[in-house]
Computed example of a mutant assay.
Amino acid sequence: MRCPLLYRFRVIDRLPEKPSEAATRGTLVHAVLERLFDAPAAERTAPRARALVPRQWDRLLETRPELGELFADDPEGERLAQWLGEAEGLVERWFALEDPTSLEPAERELSVEAELDSGLRLRGVIDRVDVAPTGEVRIVDYKTGRAPRPEYADEAWFQMVFYALVVRRLKGVLPRRLQLVYLGSGDVITYDPVEADLRRVERRLLALWEAIRRATETGDWRPRKTRLCGWCDHQALCPEFRGTPPVYPLLAGGAGA
C-alpha cells in the first residue's frame, strides 16, 4: 500500500536494511510494556517500567546483536544514554494515558492467523487484547510516534480493522473497540468497528492481493513517492531517485514463487 517497489525489495529481493534508531526504540518500548504486566498489578509503576528499559535493551541485543551497530560510533555511550532516556520518557508517558494497575490483558504480543473464504491467509501480531467481564474485546496498539493528522491516519486504522477481521474469523467475536495509543504525542484514539468495516477491509485486502499477484507475475513493481522516501534504504535502486532496480529474480529464475 505504501510503495509496491519497496514491497518487492523487502519480500522478493530480500534486500538488507539498516536498523534505525526510531524503529528499534519502538521495539524496545513495546517489549517493556509487554513485560510490565508480568508483575502484580500493584507493582506496575512508572519507576519499575523505567528500570525495565536498560534490561530489555540488553535482552534485545542478545537476540539481535546487529542492533549494536546503531551506536558503534558512540564509544562514550552518550548517544546511547540519550536514546535510552527517550525510550524511558515514552514509557513514562504511557502512565498518563492508561492505568496498568487496573488492566489484566487477556493477551500480549498475540500472534494471530486466519484464512478468508478466498483462501487468502492473514497473519499479524496484536500488541494487547483486553477482554471485559462481559466478554467484550478491545484491541490495543502502541505507537511510539505522534498521532497523524486525520488525512494520514488511514494506514493505522487499516491495520486495526485488519486485526479486528482476524479476531472475528478466529473467535467469532466482533471486537467492541479498537484503540491506538500514541506515546509520542500522548494521544489515545478509539474506534468502535461494525461488521461493514470488516467487509470493506476484506474487499480491500483481496484487491491488494490481486495487485500483488499480478505484479509478481509481470515484475511490474512501481515506486510510489511519498514523504517517507527520505527514510528509505533503497533510494540508490529506485527510479524516483534515478536508480535502477536489480534484475527481477522471479523472471530471471532466481527465486521460487
Rank of each mutant, 00 (worst) to 15 (best):
A164G: 05
T190W: 10
E151G: 07
R146L: 14
A164I: 01
V181N: 03
A164Y: 04
P150F: 03
D154H: 14
T134V: 15
V131P: 04
L180S: 09
A164R: 04
W157Y: 01
T134A: 15
D187T: 14
V167A: 06
V166Q: 03
V129A: 05
R128N: 12
E151C: 04
D130H: 10
P148G: 00
R138Q: 13
Y163V: 02
F158E: 07
G145L: 08
E136M: 08
K171T: 13
T190E: 11
R169A: 14
P175R: 06
T144H: 04
D127S: 06
K171N: 14
G186W: 02
L174E: 05
V167I: 13
G145W: 00
Y182C: 09
V173T: 10
P148Q: 00
V166H: 01
L178C: 05
Q159H: 03
L183E: 05
Q179N: 13
V140R: 02
P133F: 05
F158A: 10
V173P: 09
R177S: 07
S185P: 08
R168P: 01
I126K: 00
V161G: 00
I189W: 12
V166T: 01
V173I: 13
M160D: 07
W157Q: 01
A132D: 13
D192H: 07
W157C: 05
A132K: 12
G186R: 03
M160T: 06
G184H: 09
F162G: 09
R169F: 12
P148D: 05
A147F: 00
F162V: 08
V161A: 04
L178Q: 02
V181R: 00
T190G: 12
V167W: 11
G135A: 02
K143W: 04
K143C: 00
Y152P: 11
G184I: 06
Y142F: 11
P175D: 00
L180N: 07
G145S: 11
K171R: 15
L165M: 09
V181T: 09
R176M: 09
R146S: 14
E155K: 12
A147R: 10
P175V: 02
A132H: 12
R176V: 10
V188I: 09
L165I: 04
E136D: 14
A132Y: 07
F162E: 06
V140K: 05
W157I: 05
I189A: 13
V166P: 05
A153V: 05
G145P: 05
D141M: 09
D192G: 12
L170Q: 15
E136C: 11
Y152E: 15
R169V: 12
T134W: 12
Q179A: 14
I189P: 13
R138E: 14
F158G: 07
S185I: 10
T190F: 08
D154I: 14
V167P: 06
A132W: 09
F158M: 10
R177C: 06
V181W: 00
